[in-house]
């Protein structure tokens, strides 16, 4: 497993290899074919399969609607939302169609589609191109939200998402596109609905997804130097959550910090906190902490944006607080 490639390349490879394997897989979206996507993630696909890569009009409803309909016919669409923020103009198709098809058809057919959505802030593009949209979808049973944090996960989780028969919103954080990591050349799947313990520890559990994972890792190193052992859980699938892995970890450490890039209200941190309060109360040694953005739109000016997004120092503060409690 020596080869190191970027997160973007891993995604690209996942799609190409799945398309080689399964001719029901096709890609569609704005500028995904000839140009290879705004972020270049689909490059090279149209060149190989001009009849399986489609540039669409600016029509997110049509893109996701078509994906629903084509899924029911047995195809496996992989649609790209250039920015996850645009999900609002095709929300109906995801929420009212994709998430309900299997239920309505009682298992006979389902929206076996993937919507790749480019998410997250920090690129100085303001509130229409920087939001973390997972909370907008987290209370829609029937949908799956997948959130890779490394190139290895990018490939394995995208392959699993394409093969999965549920509608998957696949979140790609802009900041991760260029990071490099070891990625096997062959096709492989990382199972959905399973969180991954990135690092074992006994004193504090930090749950962190996507770009927040690196905060957690750095904080774990820093705390280790002080003799505090941090366990890191990366959810990988944000919804439905792998409650068991998180519970096992927190039962051991008795302390939980959730790091999430979006606003504090109603993120995965809120869900995990509430769930543990209900189901694991007796194991807790300290209050649950959330490190998040402020509850504002994402502003444009770099100083303002940095102020709003979560800070690494906040993670350290939270660690100290739960240990001192």
């Amino acid at each position: 497993m020596a080869r190191k490639i970027s997160f973007s390349k891993a995604l690209n490879e996942a799609m190409i290899q799945e398309m080689e394997r399964d001719e029901n897989v096709f890609i569609l979206g704005e500028d995904v074919a000839k140009m290879g996507g705004d972020f270049g993630i689909t490059s090279g696909i149209w060149d190989r399969w001009p009849n399986r890569a489609f540039d669409t009009a600016l029509s997110e409803s049509a893109i996701t609607g078509l994906s629903c309909g084509a899924s029911v016919c047995g195809l496996r669409p992989v649609a790209e939302l250039m920015f996850a923020d645009f999900i609002t103009v095709c929300y109906d198709q995801l929420v009212n169609n994709a998430a309900k098809l299997n239920y309505m058809y009682q298992g006979e057919a389902s929206a076996q589609m993937v919507v790749r959505a480019v998410t997250g802030g920090g690129i100085r593009c303001a509130y229409h191109h920087s939001q973390c949209i997972e909370p907008w979808l987290m209370n829609i049973p029937g949908l799956v939200i997948v959130a890779p944090a490394t190139p290895y996960e990018a490939k394995g989780l995208l392959v699993a998402s394409i093969r999965n028969n549920n509608p998957v919103v696949f979140l790609e954080h802009k900041h991760l596109y260029n990071i490099k990591g070891e990625v096997p050349e062959e096709l492989y799947e990382i199972p959905l609905y399973e969180a991954h313990v990135e690092r074992e520890g006994t004193d504090i559990t930090i749950v962190a997804a996507m770009s927040m994972l690196k905060f957690a890792q750095k904080a774990a190193d820093e705390m280790a130097a002080k003799g505090i052992s941090v366990e890191i859980v990366n959810p990988r699938t944000i919804f439905p959550l792998d409650k068991e892995t998180i519970k096992e970890s927190v039962a051991k450490t008795g302390r939980l910090i959730v790091v999430q890039e979006g606003p504090k209200v109603m993120g995965y941190g809120a869900e995990i906190g509430a769930m543990l309060g209900e189901e694991l109360f007796e194991y807790l040694k300290a209050p649950i902490k959330r490190v998040t953005s402020l509850d504002t739109p994402v502003p444009f000016a770099p100083g303002m944006e940095d102020y709003v997004l979560p800070h690494y120092e906040d993670v350290i503060t939270a660690c100290n607080e739960v240990m001192a409690y």
């Binding site: 519970k247 096992e248 039962a251 051991k252 007796e282 194991y283």
Partner: peptide, 9 residues
């Protein structure tokens, strides 16, 4: 009988 064989209430 709890997680990690911990003794529960």
């Amino acid at each position: 009988t709890g997680y990690h064989d911990m003794v529960t209430r």
